[in-house]
Design a protein around this nucleic acid. Structure first.
Lengths: 227, 227
DNA sequence: GAAAATCTACATAATTTCTTCACACACCAA
DNA sequence: TTGGTGTGTGAAGAAATTATGTAGATTTTC
């Protein structure tokens, strides 16, 4: 029985991104776009963890948390819009278990999720080690093996590889991949991904000019070969 | 049969941290998040020691202790939120065997736990000796050997090393490590860890500039090499 | 209490990584 | 084949992260 995580945020794009990440890691996901809706969903789904934005229409995160906490003690990770120390302190005092400042990188949030759930004594979903063809990627140690050889990746390279390894064969657009390494934001140069892919290929492929693992899908994006 | 320790505190994050420490030291752990719940759990688990927060919703620590003590004489360590001498005195008068002021460092609490249990005539669990590559760390004597050479570590350095030796290869974030040496708190400078790591490397590594044991994982944290 | 040891914070230097850009080349459709 | 796009690549500056030395604060020791 997978653990359920409730995401509450009015930015749909952000909710989708986080949802896909959590799903990939084996969690069940519920969503809500404001505090009011969240109360209903939380009541019904009984999530093991709630990821909660503070700034929301209808009912903000603080209000939701205050009401929710009267009856439940679900761990909560707060999403704060700016780097205001006040927010952090208020949030933590209200009972949040952790907070992440927007914009955040997906891996940052995922790390907090694992942390909070571990602290709350819940077991983690299995499968922290990904294996596709002769590539092995381990999240705990952040190590990557290609065949027998250990390769040293930068944070962005690791995150990109982890993302495409989570769904071998699926084509990722450059925008998808940009979200992976820069988080959801409104600017950013798509072609930056090309460079990361180039560097990644140089480390992961035997013959970078004829990549066997990381394939280009002309006009669309990149894909990890299942073979 | 390991001894059982009951932790009672409404701060889940704190409970989890303490739990992980106690577990690592070989104790069995039970938890409760308020006095009312604690009464039930204590009845069922019959702990050898209770770690008890004073400020809690539903039923506070004093009330729990008063009721519990009518039928049991389990040793109790109190957690007091502030440095108010009144609290300490009242607590001790009510029958607490010791108290720790929040925020506390994990090793501080562990020391008290051992102390109280020893006074209560219970034997301690055997301390574990960790060995990774050519580093040997002994919990009982708090001694560390690197190859043939005995190295002298400060308390923080010892705790850090013990933490990463418990999970070789796993990457620890600076925040993880800050919990280890400063306990649960909401402020604290992550970069302080860098300094401890530097000092630790100076003592543990043959060539501190090219560390073989304590590796840096750029953008994430530190890791103990399995090799 | 005073001295010593340790911890924390911070400034600065050293590294590493990220992003952007220009240009060459590859792909596809007409 | 032949443009018009899309992609691969190398280089360089910008940005982010880590290493290190030092000083003051705190804690421990005697």
């Amino acid at each position: 029985m997978p653990q359920t995580i409730l995401i509450v945020d009015d930015e749909k794009r952000l909710v989708s991104l986080v949802e896909s990440y959590l799903t990939q890691e084996g969690y069940r996901v519920a969503t809500a776009y404001n505090g009011k809706e969240a109360l209903v969903v939380a009541q019904k789904e009984k999530p093991d963890l709630i990821i909660l934005d503070i700034m929301m229409p209808e009912m903000n995160g603080y209000d939701f948390m205050r009401i929710h906490r009267t009856e439940h003690d679900t761990p909560i990770i707060m999403l704060t819009a700016k780097v205001e120390d006040d927010d952090k302190i208020i949030g933590l005092e209200l009972g949040a278990d952790d907070y992440v400042v927007k914009p955040f990188k997906p891996r940052e949030l995922m790390a907090r999720v694992r942390n909070v759930l571990r602290r709350a004594g819940k077991s983690e979903p299995a499968g922290k080690t990904l294996k596709v063809a002769d590539i092995v990627l381990d999240h705990d140690s952040r190590e990557v093996l290609v065949g027998e050889r250990s390769v040293d990746l930068t944070p962005s390279e690791f995150d990109l590889l982890a993302a495409i390894m989570a769904s071998p064969g699926r084509v990722f657009s450059r925008l998808d991949l940009l979200d992976v390494i820069q988080g959801v934001r409104y600017e950013g140069y798509e072609r930056t991904i090309d460079t990361h892919i180039k560097n990644l290929r140089a480390k992961v492929e035997d013959d970078p000019r004829n990549p066997r693992h990381i394939e280009t899908v002309y006009g669309v994006g990149y894909r990890l070969s299942k073979g």
